[in-house]
């Protein structure tokens, strides 16, 4: 049965009418018109759909709308814009760390959650944090470098 939920996304309150078990991904994409979180598998296996809910990087393809509650949701759009990119986005652009780019939402959002809890991760810690994020284009090493640079504040 559709219900109305109030959720806070990228600092703005929204009211959404949908079934409570609707995966958050579809609410973000279709009700709120956000493009950052992507459908990759719907199975919690790839990370393309990642957004931050509360303080955690969450796989929104399986995370029900009803579970969001009052936790703030941050998507890729909530980090920065083309004109004013977040340091992570800046670092990814500087490193041109995208081939097709479809996986990159998941990489940046997972990295954001990582840096929030561990501002100076080692390369191994970065690789571990991304262990469940898949990239098919082989952009891995650039992604890791971009995150290292962002952590070091090494991006002009």
């Amino acid at each position: 049965m559709p219900e109305t939920f109030r959720i806070q996304v990228n600092g703005v309150e929204h009211s959404v009418t949908a079934d409570g078990d609707t995966p958050l991904l579809y609410v973000l994409r279709n009700d709120l018109g956000l493009n950052g979180p992507k459908f990759g598998c719907g199975l919690e296996q790839c990370g393309a759909c990642t957004a931050i809910v509360g303080a955690e990087a969450i796989r929104t393809c399986v995370f029900p709308l009803s579970a969001v509650g009052s936790a703030p949701v941050v998507t890729l759009e909530g980090l920065g814009t083309v004109e004013e990119p977040h340091p992570l986005q800046k670092a990814f652009i500087a490193e041109q760390a995208a081939q097709c780019g479809y996986c990159i939402n998941g990489m940046i959002m997972t990295a954001k959650a990582l840096l929030d809890r561990n501002p100076r991760p080692t390369r191994t810690e970065i690789r571990q944090a991304l262990a469940r994020n898949l990239c098919r284009c082989g952009t891995h090493l650039r992604i890791v470098r971009a995150i290292e640079n962002a952590a070091k504040g090494a991006v002009p």
Partner: peptide
Amino acid sequence: VPRLDIPAKLTGGEAY
């Protein structure tokens, strides 16, 4: 030159 398609892809633009 920086790729034309990358900024939108990294910021949630309509890219796909």
